[in-house]
Amino acid sequence: MKMLVNVILPIEPFNSMVRDGSVGEIIGRVIDDIKPESIYFSEQDGSRGAVMVVEVPDASAIPSIAEPWFLNFEAHCEFRIAMTPDDLKRANLSKLAEKWNGVHA
């Protein structure tokens, strides 16, 4: 399944890695290992951040995606399942609406 992974990189240790010149090599190794379909770097809540699209065969693959960010950058990672339009069509929303419409707890 596809997942969106939101990575928030705190100011430290990232600044120290920029200063000592190691950040590019480490990020390159992390990206090479994770092999995201795409990755974009941006600001997030005043910190550096990245958003990746990754293919996750099952939940046991999540640590191999998160740990490089946790261990190298003390990052915060959020995982969200991503649906394509075809996935949404296969969800059969009209059938779910029939089943749950008007049901109140």
Score class of each variant (00 low, 15 high):
residue 99 K to Q: 13
residue 85 P to W: 14
residue 58 D to R: 11
residue 21 G to W: 01
residue 69 W to D: 03
residue 52 M to C: 05
residue 87 D to G: 10
residue 25 E to S: 11
residue 3 M to W: 03
residue 8 I to M: 11
residue 104 H to L: 12
residue 65 I to E: 01
residue 46 G to H: 06
residue 32 D to Y: 03
residue 92 N to C: 09
residue 5 V to L: 02
residue 84 T to W: 03
residue 70 F to I: 05
residue 42 S to V: 12
residue 47 S to C: 14
residue 55 E to P: 13
residue 41 F to R: 10
residue 75 A to H: 00
residue 52 M to K: 06
residue 8 I to Y: 07
residue 40 Y to A: 12
residue 68 P to G: 05
residue 14 F to P: 10
residue 59 A to R: 03
residue 51 V to F: 11
residue 84 T to V: 01
residue 6 N to R: 15
residue 72 N to P: 05
residue 20 D to C: 12
residue 62 I to C: 03
residue 102 G to H: 03
residue 80 R to H: 15
residue 81 I to W: 04
residue 60 S to R: 10
residue 31 I to C: 01
residue 38 S to W: 11
residue 61 A to T: 06
residue 52 M to H: 05
residue 38 S to F: 13
residue 8 I to D: 05
residue 70 F to S: 04
residue 21 G to E: 04
residue 24 G to M: 01
residue 8 I to L: 07
residue 4 L to G: 06
residue 49 G to S: 09
residue 46 G to M: 07
residue 99 K to C: 06
residue 96 L to E: 06
residue 94 S to I: 08
residue 100 W to T: 13
residue 84 T to F: 00
residue 32 D to Q: 09
residue 32 D to L: 07
residue 45 D to R: 12
residue 82 A to E: 09
residue 102 G to R: 01
residue 90 R to L: 11
residue 48 R to Q: 06
residue 82 A to D: 13
residue 75 A to E: 00
residue 86 D to H: 10
residue 49 G to L: 09
residue 78 E to F: 03
residue 72 N to Q: 11
residue 25 E to Y: 05
residue 97 A to I: 14
residue 25 E to K: 12
residue 34 I to E: 08
residue 1 M to K: 08
residue 41 F to L: 04
residue 24 G to E: 04
residue 27 I to F: 08
residue 23 V to A: 15
residue 18 V to W: 02
residue 3 M to G: 05
residue 65 I to G: 04
residue 18 V to Q: 08
residue 72 N to S: 13
residue 94 S to F: 07
residue 68 P to C: 06
residue 70 F to P: 00
residue 93 L to Y: 04
residue 44 Q to C: 10
residue 35 K to F: 02
residue 2 K to Q: 08
residue 57 P to R: 12
residue 40 Y to W: 13
residue 62 I to N: 02
residue 104 H to M: 10
residue 97 A to M: 12
residue 7 V to D: 01
residue 81 I to V: 09
residue 79 F to T: 01
residue 88 L to I: 14
residue 11 I to Q: 13
residue 84 T to I: 02
residue 75 A to Q: 00
residue 29 R to N: 07
residue 13 P to G: 06
residue 1 M to Q: 13
residue 8 I to P: 02
residue 61 A to Y: 06
residue 26 I to Q: 01
residue 70 F to T: 05
residue 31 I to Q: 01
residue 58 D to E: 14
residue 41 F to I: 09
residue 35 K to A: 03
residue 105 A to F: 11
residue 52 M to I: 07
residue 42 S to F: 13
residue 29 R to F: 02
residue 33 D to C: 14
residue 45 D to G: 14
residue 41 F to Q: 08
residue 63 P to K: 02
residue 29 R to L: 04
residue 43 E to Y: 06
residue 95 K to Y: 14
residue 105 A to R: 15
residue 13 P to F: 04
residue 95 K to S: 15
residue 54 V to N: 02
residue 71 L to V: 10
residue 18 V to T: 10
residue 57 P to C: 08
residue 98 E to L: 11
residue 86 D to L: 12
residue 72 N to R: 11
residue 3 M to H: 07
residue 22 S to P: 03
residue 62 I to R: 01
residue 44 Q to N: 14
residue 59 A to C: 02
residue 37 E to Y: 14
residue 15 N to Q: 15
residue 22 S to V: 03
residue 11 I to G: 07
residue 68 P to A: 06
residue 68 P to K: 05
